[in-house]
Design a protein around this nucleic acid. Structure first.
Lengths: 193, 193
DNA sequence: TCAAAAAATGAATCCCTATTCATAATGATG
DNA sequence: CATCATTATGAATAGGGATTCATTTTTTGA
């Protein structure tokens, strides 16, 4: 087994366990068992428990960024880009519920922690939104008085809050498509000149 | 000292300690020291550590709900109500940074936990938003095709994400008023017919 | 003023688990 | 096949901290 295989085997196990029990209640031995390795083996690939969390966060967000940027390249209209972004975000986290739970946790887990560790991957992700807004403003489609730095957070916050529905509720009252449609309409009307 | 005084003394201490260290890293002895009581005393008022968290959450959200409902009574225009809600939310959490950190944490801390404990106070809070939207739709001011159940979460998510700025950043790039203005404009345009 | 009840104390208990490390297994090389 | 290097193992360590409870302090009311 290649080294990277074991690394990702542990990461995937950690996603499941963190989602099931939360970061603090997850035991290293739980992750080890889930990954079918010995407890000690984990420390050959990660420095400590926190390191697993950060590492998985960066890896997974990194993958998501690549995917969505690729998707957005196909489209030029900023309004449609916004819809694509929203739909992709919701779809992805619906498909990967475990990951969704962990990302939501990680983002808030400990603000102390977030302060120190400059979360560049996360910033890169939400900056995709502000780039779209900026583009729309350049092209005189979007209202130039809207602050992209506020709107990007508003949009991300809205998506994130909605995706909690799918994480927490067995039978969410809305479909993914309906939600993406509603949200992007709402923000599009809000952004348009 | 009346019983309720000691209860709230412990609650207030817990807010500070949870904000400083996070729930899991906070020790009961830290809270006891902050509240100037013995460790054991805490167990005369709360069943366990979790109970402190839930209890403080309900108490504080309860107070906020009362405040904001009172404020909203003065105003009849749903658009202005939305602005008042946003401004109040941001102002309050800016003034009480510790509380803001704890509420943000609590909301996500453990999704498992959130699933079991039906968080009625939180639901009551965001339902203030959907009531405003509903009113606007009844009065033919807001677009009837907007789903209040989605919009309420979008608006709350946006506010919550923005308030993280003040919690995490020493020098936030926007003022409270500017942010409330931008957010309510954004959503107002999105909601209006 | 003085029991009796209520409230508070904090040291001791008891459990939990992240991390380490001596040992074992596996793989590579000539 | 023999040797060295790499990788994996999991029992033992080591420390932390939530909760309990026997004891002390404070309050109540007769």
């Amino acid at each position: 087994m290649r080294i990277s295989d074991k690394h990702s085997k542990i990461t995937q196990a950690a996603v499941k366990v963190f989602a099931r029990k939360g970061f603090f209640n997850a035991r290293i031995s739980d992750i080890a068992k889930e990954a079918k390795v010995a407890d000690g083996t984990i420390y050959l690939y990660f420095n400590n428990k926190y390191d697993i969390l950060i590492s998985l966060f960066e890896d997974e967000i990194g993958k998501i960024i690549l995917q969505v940027k690729l998707l957005l390249e196909e489209e030029s209209d900023p309004g449609k880009k916004l819809y694509i972004f929203a739909l992709h975000h919701l779809k992805l986290l619906d498909k990967k519920k475990d990951l969704a739970e962990v990302l939501q946790m990680e983002l808030r887990q400990s603000n102390k922690f977030m302060k120190e560790y400059r979360n560049t991957k996360f910033i890169e992700y939400i900056d995709i939104i502000s780039a779209i807004i900026h583009q729309g403003q350049e092209e005189n489609i979007f209202d130039p008085t809207v602050a992209p730095g506020i709107a990007k957070r508003a949009i991300f916050g809205a998506l994130d809050e909605m995706s909690r529905l799918w994480v927490l509720d067995e039978n969410p009252p809305y479909t993914i498509e309906e939600t993406a449609q509603q949200l992007s309409n709402l923000f599009l009307k809000g952004l348009t000149l």
